[in-house]
Simulated assay, not measured.
Amino acid sequence: MPAPLRIHLTPEEDAQLRELETNPVVPFKVRRRAQAVRLAAQGWTAPRIACHLGLDRSTLHRDLRRWLEKGIEGLEDGKSPGASPRWIPAMSAFLRELLQGEEAWTTPRLVEALEGRFFVTFHPGTVRRKLLEMGYRWKRTRYVPMGKPREEEVARFKAALEGAQRGG
């Protein structure tokens, strides 16, 4: 049988743990760990604390050891498992740079541009969601002449407009 874990708290630590334990904004697991540490400091045994809080004894021992090693920081949840996100801030900056130009972009074309630059493939829905997060909205494209029209184009347009106004 392992030796019981002895926990002694300073009044400041006890006040911090009490604040964590009663703060509704703090995640439930952190509040429960704070409560377990305070109960252990009051002399409760590990089986009694585990029964009272509905924890497994090995989980309780792990939480109490983390408290002894790291203090308040040991009560926080660790980094969740899983793959790191593939979307990086440089991709958002690249999209902003592309969208500042005069060219009309569609989501599939932006996916191709991202793949060409970062060698990562995304679903168009992912890119669309990121664009919404960045504050961009979908707009229907319009056909407008590029740049300032030449004089002969203006003359042709005026002639066609006069013909249309006369009914010809």
Rank of each mutant, 00 (worst) to 15 (best):
A159H: 06
R33C: 05
L75P: 01
R18M: 07
W105G: 00
G74Q: 05
K148G: 03
A104T: 13
I72S: 08
T59F: 15
L20N: 03
R6N: 09
P4F: 02
R150P: 06
R156H: 13
T22H: 11
T126Y: 10
N23M: 04
L9F: 05
R129N: 13
V154T: 14
T121I: 07
P108I: 08
Q35M: 14
E112M: 09
A164P: 02
R33S: 03
E21S: 12
E152T: 06
V120L: 07
V111C: 15
A34K: 00
Q35L: 14
P85D: 11
C51D: 12
E151V: 07
I7P: 00
K158F: 14
P149H: 10
E69Y: 04
F94L: 05
E73Q: 15
P81Q: 11
T106H: 11
R38K: 09
Q165W: 11
G78H: 07
P2Y: 12
A160N: 08
T45M: 10
A93K: 12
D14C: 09
G43T: 03
P4D: 09
R66P: 04
E103G: 05
W105L: 00
M91V: 09
T45K: 10
V144K: 11
R48W: 04
F28L: 12
P24T: 10
R109Q: 15
L131H: 02
A160C: 11
L132D: 15
H8Q: 13
R48V: 04
P4R: 05
V120P: 02
Y143M: 07
L114G: 00
G168I: 06
A46L: 15
K130F: 01
R142N: 11
R142S: 12
F118L: 03
H8A: 14
E21R: 13
W138H: 09
A50T: 07
R156W: 15
E102C: 03
V154P: 06
H123F: 03
L98H: 02
S80E: 12
C51T: 08
S84Q: 08
I88K: 11
T126M: 12
A50L: 05
K148E: 13
S80V: 12
L60Y: 00
A34L: 01
E19K: 11
E151W: 12
G74N: 03
D56T: 11
M91E: 14
P27Y: 04
